[in-house]
């Protein structure tokens, strides 16, 4: 199963490297969001700084769902060819999940410094903890996004449906990520550990549960 997943992941990755169809538009959209924050919350950088954790995570989530929803979309458009391959169905999900995690991680690596720059907030001093927060938040979003992406791939108007399903679903993750990031800036820092745990639990559950249920989706 793992070998097939690696090959499938490689297939999608080379497609993305050749076309840059997902990452580029998503990253540009993320940067536009940062600009729009500046316009919408007119008040200069001083006013935006306390809101930085929330603004950053909303930017990451909004631009990420553009990227994660497409992973299963390309297969739906290509027909059901992948399902004819003599491989474990779980491998398909794992490969898409790995691609989504990689894409959102790259996206976050681009957007976080850009947001810090544009919104005038210094990044937290505890670099490793901040990296952990970013990774846990992004992996959870990619996992939930892969599950919802698989569910909406066969629907009409999937681009419209995905945010309506995914964004309320990931609200605990958003709460955890924003609170953890705020904690790194010194707002109730004692709770940092519990928020990181919450995100880790969310990540674990929503990697495992969709992986177990994915088989059912491929049977019909």
């Amino acid at each position: 199963m793992l070998k097939a997943a690696v090959w499938l992941f490689w297939k999608d990755l080379s497609l993305e490297l050749r076309g840059r169809e997902l990452l580029l538009p998503a990253a540009v959209f993320g940067l536009i969001i940062a600009m729009l924050y500046g316009f919408a919350f007119d008040g200069g950088q001083q006013a935006l700084r306390p809101m930085f954790p929330g603004l950053l995570w909303l930017g990451i989530f909004f631009s990420s769902f553009l990227a994660v929803g497409r992973a299963f979309g390309v297969e739906a458009e290509a027909g059901q060819q992948l399902l004819m391959a003599p491989i474990d169905r779980g491998a398909i999900f794992l490969a898409k999940l790995a691609l989504n995690i990689l894409l959102t991680l790259v996206l976050t690596a681009v957007l976080t410094p850009a947001f810090a720059l544009l919104l005038g907030a210094p990044l937290p001093r505890a670099t490793w903890l901040f990296l952990w927060t970013l990774v846990l938040g992004v992996v959870g979003f990619a996992a939930a996004g892969s599950a919802m992406g698989a569910l909406t791939a066969q629907t009409r108007l999937r681009e419209l449906l995905l945010p309506a399903l995914l964004l309320p679903f990931t609200s605990p993750l958003l709460l955890g990520a924003v609170s953890a990031t705020s904690a790194l800036y010194g707002k109730s820092p004692a709770q940092l550990g519990s928020w990181l745990w919450l995100m880790a639990v969310f990540d674990g559950i929503f990697i495992l549960v969709p992986l177990l249920l994915f088989e059912y989706l491929t049977e019909v």
């Binding site: 599950a147 569910l151 399903l165 679903f169 609200s171 605990p172 709460l175 955890g176 609170s179 709770q191 519990s194 928020w195 919450l198 639990v201 969310f202 559950i205 929503f206 549960v209 969709p210 249920l213 059912y216 989706l217």
Partner: peptide, 19 residues
Amino acid sequence: VYALIVFVDVPIVYLSVRW
């Protein structure tokens, strides 16, 4: 499948908002 995943999510939502 959606219903199963969502049902698992609700307690996590509750816990997170409670904190």
